[in-house]
Computed example of a mutant assay.
Amino acid sequence: MEPLMKHTGKVAVLNRINVDTDQIIPKQFLKRIERTGYGRFAFFDWRYLEDGKPNPKFELNQPEYEGASILIAGENFGCGSSREHAPWALGDYGFKIMIAPSFADIFHQNCFKNGMLPIRLPYKIWKGLLEQYEHQSRLLTVDLQEQMLTDDNGKQIPFEVDQHWREMLMNGYDEISLTLLLEDEIEQFENQRSTWLQV
C-alpha cells in the first residue's frame, strides 16, 4: 500500500445515517475476483436511475463533489455485512479518507487494512464540519502524522487514531508487510525448528 501521511483533497458530504455495506456495494457486484473495478458500482442503487442514467438527486452526483477524495459521512457508516468489498469500492471510487461520528467496527478496521483513513469525530465537531462543507466545493487537509484537520481558512481540528493503525498507514504497511518485518526472526525460528525435528 502507498503510505498516507498528509492529504489535501476535495470534500463530499453524504449526510445519511446507518449507510450499510449493501448500499455501498450491492451484493450483485461481488462476483469479481479482483479488488479493483468496484468504484463504478459504489452506491449503485442511489447513484443511478432505472434507465442507468445518474440520479441527479443523489448527493455524490452533484457537480461540486466531482473528484472528491474525502467523504464526510453520517453516524454508523459501514454497518451491516462485514464485506471487505465496501472499502474496495470506496477506494476505487476515489475516497482516501472518511470522517464520521461513528463507523461499524469491522468496516472501520477494513478501511485501515486497505490503506484508507476513517476518522471519528465527536458529534458536535462533526456536525460543524458537515455544515461547513455541505453543498460547497472546498478543500480539507488531513495530516495523519500530526493528527490534525485543516480547512481552507486555516481552522484546525485535532483527531485521534489508534497508534497501531496510524503506523500502518503512515508506513504503507498491510498485514503481510508487518509479517515480513519479522522475516529474520521467522527464518531463525524455522532453522531452529529443523534441528528440533532431527532429534
Rank of each mutant, 00 (worst) to 15 (best):
K6F: 00
K6R: 07
H7A: 00
V11A: 00
L14R: 00
N15T: 00
N18R: 08
D20I: 02
D20Q: 04
Q23T: 03
I25N: 02
P26K: 07
P26N: 08
P26W: 05
P26S: 06
K31A: 04
E34L: 12
R35V: 05
G37W: 10
G39K: 02
G39E: 05
R40C: 13
F41T: 05
F43C: 02
F44W: 14
D45H: 09
R47H: 09
R47G: 08
Y48G: 06
N55P: 06
P56H: 03
K57V: 15
K57D: 15
N61S: 10
N61P: 05
P63T: 00
Y65G: 00
G67L: 12
S69Q: 01
I72G: 00
G74D: 06
F77W: 02
G80I: 04
S82T: 07
S82Y: 09
R83F: 03
E84R: 02
H85K: 05
P87T: 12
W88C: 03
G91F: 14
Y93K: 14
G94R: 12
F95A: 07
M98G: 03
P101T: 06
D105V: 14
D105L: 13
D105I: 14
H108V: 09
H108K: 09
Q109M: 13
Q109R: 15
K113F: 12
N114G: 06
P118H: 01
W126F: 11
K127S: 11
L129P: 11
Q132R: 10
Q132F: 07
Q132C: 01
E134Q: 13
E134R: 12
L140F: 00
T141I: 01
T141S: 02
V142T: 09
V142D: 03
D143M: 07
K155F: 08
I157R: 01
I157K: 00
I157C: 01
E160F: 08
V161I: 15
H164Y: 14
H164G: 09
H164N: 10
E167K: 13
E167Q: 14
M168I: 14
L169C: 09
M170H: 10
M170V: 13
G172K: 11
Y173M: 12
Y173P: 06
D174A: 05
E175C: 04
S177K: 13
L178F: 11
L181W: 10
L181T: 07
E183D: 14
E185N: 10
E185F: 10
E187T: 13
T195K: 14
W196R: 09
L197K: 12
Q198G: 02
